[in-house]
Design a protein around this nucleic acid. Sequence first.
DNA 1: GAGCACGCGGCAATCGGTTGCGAGACCGAA
DNA 2: TTCGGTCTCGCAACCGATTGCCGCGTGCTC
Lengths: 348, 348
Amino acid sequence: MPRSPSKTRPITIKDVAQLAGVHASTVSRALNPATRSMVAQDLAASILRAAQKLGYQPDHLAASLRTGRSLLVGVLLPDIANPVFAPILSGITERLIEDGYSTIVADAGPGAPSATTLLDGLIAHRVDGLVLATATRDDALVGRCLERNVPVVLVNRAEAQARVSAAVSDDMRGMQLAVDHLVGLGHRRIGHIAGPPTLSTGLLRLRGFEAAIRDQDTPLESFSQSATAYSREAGAEAAGRLLAAAPQITAIVAANDLLALGAYDALRERGLRCPEDISVVGHNDMPLMDLVAPALTSVRIEHRAMGREAAELLVQRMRRADASTRMVMLTPRLVVRGSTAAPRPEQR
Amino acid sequence: MPRSPSKTRPITIKDVAQLAGVHASTVSRALNPATRSMVAQDLAASILRAAQKLGYQPDHLAASLRTGRSLLVGVLLPDIANPVFAPILSGITERLIEDGYSTIVADAGPGAPSATTLLDGLIAHRVDGLVLATATRDDALVGRCLERNVPVVLVNRAEAQARVSAAVSDDMRGMQLAVDHLVGLGHRRIGHIAGPPTLSTGLLRLRGFEAAIRDQDTPLESFSQSATAYSREAGAEAAGRLLAAAPQITAIVAANDLLALGAYDALRERGLRCPEDISVVGHNDMPLMDLVAPALTSVRIEHRAMGREAAELLVQRMRRADASTRMVMLTPRLVVRGSTAAPRPEQR
DNA sequence: GAGCACGCGGCAATCGGTTGCGAGACCGAA
DNA sequence: TTCGGTCTCGCAACCGATTGCCGCGTGCTC
């Protein structure tokens, strides 16, 4: 079937070549700033004019086939619905677009195909690199990328063996800030709601909590329970276990804001008030944490900056295959709000 | 430079063909379920085995060049950081992946290139379709897609001329729910914080508010002020104007939860209590709105479902170029929480 | 037994840019 | 005038998969 002449066929480089009276290869060189010097200046200018006139739009796809570079970067998220990933994603795309990359987002959230399937899908699109936010501590996905030879960095979570670069928050330091704050207020019996131990943040924050407890001058009692997931429900459930096992605690440090909000639910359910009966500290300082009741004291992580850093690491790795693998650690800071207070005198 | 033999070159269809002892085209047919019947069953099976053995992964990119279908869909968001877009995006990707599409996300948030630039970038990647969440009421972007002949649907916001399909919430109905609720509680003087009038939600919700006011049996006083953006700050500012212009109001209906939260800020600043002095109703029912203080009464929109619907419309449009353009309206429902109450007797 | 239809699979063109290589033009120097 | 060098551009292969077309062989029918 002959192409209907009325339907506007997309303009190709050949159309431009014809109008400019040159060969397609010359057009290609003139259009690419990097190779433009290979073409006489005035000719290049007239080619640009021809392209402009026709409204030529380059086709990355075709170029990719030849160059091997797709200008696409895959981002694998554990769950878009989790509010912390929005700013991370934002930071990633913001940085990548500076180098001309677009981002393909794959969400491994509930109801989605397996992360491995999603990863293969991204690779099938020939992404030039990958940002993984899903990495559990030892992650088969990383290995898969490595053997396929596609550049990869981690964000928010690191892996046990540091095979690839990662941008993370200093979780040890974050927990130290939280514990210091509580101890400064007079708390001596502190509980921790840990994240899933399979996730690097879960483990590191637990370790950070324990280290922070040990580092205090005053002897403390500490307790911890792991949540099965980073969700409000899991937080409430773990908080229930924690309060049952150690009813004497006067403060709870949660590994995550959602867990902290779950702790709110558990406290309310048991008729306990925050901060009068129990202080609560979160982690991440998600948006709106200043508006919940009570406003949540939380360890603030600059997620947007973290996304940018991850993208930066990836760009370096994509530019040079032998770029050193690094771990960028962002320093968190504590934002004190209404959910923490000194324990009541009789609680001491 | 000869390719180093140690570096594992990606497996192509030719490698599979060689191992299976057939031509590449036969491999292509055997691998594609749609064309598999053109190959003898046992041969197809042995080709599949060969592909399996080599760990062959198809290359969408190359296929796209020939077929003209990239299996990529572009999603243009006004601002990833806005929490309502996370579930929308989630719904979109979830639906699209069922048909094998991946999504390229472009964020037109602050600091990003212009939406037009982003759109051109997406088109350069030869996306098979586009979901626009950025559409202002009359949108040049839509025209651009139309003239480039790329399928496009809108989500969350519709355009004045219904040139393309859209999935939106029934904003008129949402405002009616909000006003009915307040009137039922006894409110007679109601203020509205409208969204930017350039956005379809801003305008439609304002109209919906006005219509809902008119439709009441009892005569009401109403007032409204437009916010300059959908943000907490703009909400606080507009609420300030509203309270200055009409101090007698006993309730505020905001076009958006963030605006409602801004209203909280403005009330607090003026020493007014919610709901005792002024009731507040939001719109969207974002996550965590049950945890802010006071818990926000809000018009709930199923954003995830909306995303799915938009994707569904796009899939239909991509399958058949002549698919009818439709507008899918999701029915919102009111979630009553602590931010609304009957006005005090002396306020009547 | 000859002819025909059909199932199957190979050949080669194709998608739209990119790039190694070489040809031709032009200039300056010997 | 000739030769070498440089600058500019065209030619054609190439990236990897898809697909229209054709030929071969088998089996069926008359």
